[in-house]
Amino acid sequence: MCVTKASEVRFGQSNCSWSSCREGCTKDIFKCTHIHVNYKRDTKGEFVGTNFTDEALIDTIEWDLINARLYPNVKGCGYPPSVNCTDFNRNYSTPGRTFPCYYSKQTPVMVINHLDLETIKTDLLYAIIIPWGLFLVSILYLLFTYVGMKKPETEGDDTQEVISAKASKEASNYSLRSIGKTINHGMNKLMRDPDDKG
């Protein structure tokens, strides 16, 4: 069980190293809301009938953790309509507000207000099955394509090699002839028209 201890709105990127809720996981934030909560494990109805509108009463209870950070999900961000930060801040930023919550055993200062294990398991299965399935299909396609390719016929190989060799020889002869002509032309020009400077 969580109770909101304090909340504050901050401005400036240096003051917003974290935000309880941010719409858009990649954008820079210059305005953020910090919602601090206290939580207690295994309350067994301990808070029934307790009115925390008197903030001094919050400090009289022995909490398992004080000043934890509240997030809507593990990433602390999302996109509408699944995560609406305006509604989230309105619902959970009032000091004294009590609500069920989930804390992290790895990072005890991290608290989320909602946890849907079935959705998380489904997303995880999709994240594993779809990429691996596409990978296997592409490998099978490549294997079938490779096995189905015909080998070149041996009869035409000799003929093709002879044609390729002739074409290569003619191309090299042409290159050598054109280079020789260019050199001869340059030499003739130098011999007939000497430069004024000698």
Score class of each variant (00 low, 15 high):
L134T: 07
D195N: 15
K5M: 04
M110T: 07
V83G: 07
I129P: 01
Y71N: 10
G24D: 10
G96R: 08
R97T: 13
C25M: 06
K197H: 13
A56L: 07
Y92G: 03
K105D: 01
C21T: 06
T182C: 13
Y126L: 13
N89V: 09
S172T: 07
D123R: 14
I139E: 00
V83R: 15
C101Y: 10
N184M: 09
K40H: 14
T98C: 05
G78D: 00
R10L: 14
Y146V: 10
H34Q: 08
L117R: 13
E8H: 05
T182A: 13
V111L: 07
P131R: 03
S19A: 11
A6K: 12
D42A: 12
P131D: 01
E161P: 00
T154M: 10
K150D: 00
K121P: 03
K75H: 13
Y39K: 07
R22A: 08
N38T: 04
Q160N: 09
I139V: 15
D157Y: 03
D158N: 12
G49C: 01
E118K: 15
E161G: 00
L134S: 11
G76V: 09
Y92S: 02
R22F: 02
W18H: 11
P100K: 13
D195T: 13
G156M: 07
E153T: 08
V137A: 15
S17A: 06
G133L: 08
N67T: 06
T182F: 11
K181P: 00
I66V: 14
I35R: 14
R41A: 09
C16W: 02
C85E: 01
C2V: 05
K151F: 06
T94D: 03
V111W: 09
L117W: 03
S168P: 00
Q106C: 04
A56Y: 01
L115A: 00
T159Y: 12
M187E: 11
L125G: 00
K40M: 10
S19Q: 06
D193G: 03
T145L: 09
M110L: 09
D158H: 10
I120M: 15
G180A: 11
Y79D: 08
V9P: 01
P194N: 08
H34P: 03
Y71I: 05
L134A: 11
K166N: 04
I163V: 14
K197Q: 08
F52Y: 01
C2K: 10
C21K: 12
E118M: 04
N91V: 06
W132G: 02
Y71A: 03
E153R: 13
L142D: 02
G49F: 02
D42E: 11
T43W: 07
N173H: 05
K150R: 12
N173T: 09
T94M: 00
E153W: 07
E155V: 05
Q13I: 02
T50K: 14
L142F: 10
D59K: 11
A167W: 04
Y141K: 10
T53H: 09
N188L: 14
H36R: 15
